[in-house]
């Protein structure tokens, strides 16, 4: 524990009447496999990306079958939000926030799609389908070529135009 955390820890002990000493210590060592089964977090550097691959050509088929009904033709939006086809930049009125104009990391597209989409059947796509539909969304946003293969090593390397567009507001105490 670094000094900052020790101080924070002692401080909360003072604020709350309960302290770690009162803890019954009932946590059980996490069973083998649970961490692997549950941990779907994918980091900007690609950590967490699974095996598999796909390109925009197969991705278009996945998109048409599983995504188009809500996100519209070419990702231009429908009952669910627009994913591609921005007509304005971020300083225009109104600004157009899409994967191409706004999202800082390509890995987030894979992470979010795997955990939450398609909305009516989350978790139903396999990893090849997920890489393919991710590739299709990146292609629609003019970020990669139609035949470019997305996998655990190529996806984190996709250059996102708004990669440096965010200002961290959080100041650690």
């Amino acid at each position: 524990m670094c000094m900052r955390k020790i101080v924070a820890f002692l401080l909360c002990c003072a604020v709350y009447p309960v302290c770690a000493n009162d803890s019954p210590h009932l946590g059980k060592p996490a069973p083998q496999g649970l961490e692997k089964a549950w941990n779907g977090d994918i980091f900007p550097n690609g950590k967490g990306l699974p095996a598999g691959s796909g390109n925009a050509i197969t991705g278009k088929k996945v998109y048409t079958q599983y995504c188009l009904s809500c996100h519209g033709v070419d990702g231009t939006g429908g009952s669910a939000e627009e994913l591609a086809g921005a007509k304005h930049g971020l300083t225009d009125n109104p600004p157009d926030k899409t994967i191409g104009t706004y999202w800082p990391y390509a890995t987030t597209v894979f992470d979010f799609t795997r955990r939450a989409m398609p909305l009516n059947a989350p978790g139903s796509l396999n990893h090849d389908q997920l890489y393919a539909v991710t590739a299709y969304l990146l292609y629609l946003n003019h970020l990669i070529q139609e035949t470019q293969l997305m996998n655990a090593s190529t996806l984190p390397k996709v250059k996102m135009p708004n990669r440096n567009g965010f200002i961290n507001q959080y100041q650690a105490r």
Partner: peptide, 27 residues
């Protein structure tokens, strides 16, 4: 972890676009 995961709900959403075109994150 030693870094944020950069989830959809802390990048695409729950960030505030400023007139400069930059956006406030982790506000």
């Amino acid at each position: 972890t030693d870094q944020p995961v950069m989830a959809r709900n802390e990048t695409a959403k729950y960030t505030e676009l400023l007139p400069s075109g930059k956006a406030r994150q982790f506000s």
